[in-house]
């Protein structure tokens, strides 16, 4: 019976998330519908990039969310490490695949924009591109580490350390375009002196960002609920074996 109190909170969480999930999913669909319309139809082409600017409405939210997801994953990891709360471990663990997908999407769309605009898909010497690829590998390494250990508590501790160490890459990614000469353009939105994106493009970008955020919340809740249920199944199987 000793381990059971730890499932008290996850049970409450499951009930709460079951109530939030339909709303989060509905919000995701609505925001993506509006965002896609604005990105593809309701926004002007750029003076220089022409219509390739439309790639930005995927690329930039994906890249921002890749960073935000990593920070959240590190926060959950730290909470799990300090308070040994299984729900925090589960949350951190399930941030990783979503964050890795955002990172991959940012890398792919970046290459698809770079090819016609810069004249190259990928440049190894560029600090922004390279540090972003490292982010992808950090996510993959984090996910792999969870698979190495049988014991979820040990796995959570090892993975948490990697997540926290990898945190150093986040400011490097953000400031890479400022600290060093890069092919990648400097920040256009979160910069001193305000955004350098025309409002006609900034609004669609923010709608897409919130669509990505709603998507993230939905999928993270889905995955946490799934993992809580899976752990419950394992505990039940153990009880059954003992009986």
């Amino acid at each position: 019976m000793s381990g059971w109190h730890r499932f008290a909170n996850p049970t409450r969480f499951s009930r709460l998330s079951a109530r939030i999930l339909p709303w989060a999913l509905a919000l995701t669909i609505v925001l993506f519908a509006v965002g896609l319309y604005l990105a593809l139809v309701g926004s002007p082409p750029d003076a220089r990039q022409k219509d390739t600017v439309r790639i930005m409405y995927i690329h930039v939210p994906a890249a921002w969310m890749a960073l935000a997801t990593y920070v959240l994953m590190a926060v959950f990891s730290g909470m799990g490490f300090i308070w040994k709360h299984p729900l925090a471990d589960i949350a951190a663990k399930n941030c990783a695949p979503i964050g890795a997908s955002f990172t991959l999407l940012a890398l792919i769309t970046g290459a698809l924009w770079g090819a016609p605009m810069w004249g190259t898909w990928w440049e190894w010497g560029d600090a922004r591109l390279t540090s972003f690829l490292i982010l992808f590998f950090l996510y993959l390494g984090y996910m792999a580490l969870w698979q190495v250990f049988e014991d979820p508590e040990k796995a959570a501790r090892a993975a948490a350390i990697l997540a926290l160490v990898g945190l150093i890459n986040i400011p490097v990614i953000h400031f890479s375009v400022q600290w060093w000469n890069t092919l990648h353009q400097p920040a256009s939105v979160f910069r001193r002196g305000g955004p350098t994106i025309d409002p006609a493009m900034l609004w669609p970008l923010f709608v897409m960002l919130f669509a990505f955020k709603a998507y993230f919340v939905s999928v993270l809740l889905l995955r946490i609920r799934a993992e809580v249920a899976e752990r419950r199944v394992r505990a039940l199987q153990m009880m059954q074996a003992e009986a």
């Binding site: 750029d46 990039q49 930005m56 605009m117 256009s188 910069r191 025309d198 006609a200």
Partner: peptide, 10 residues
């Protein structure tokens, strides 16, 4: 290679 700056406008 061409470089783009931080300005986006119609």
């Amino acid at each position: 290679l061409a470089k783009h700056d931080e300005n986006y406008m119609p």
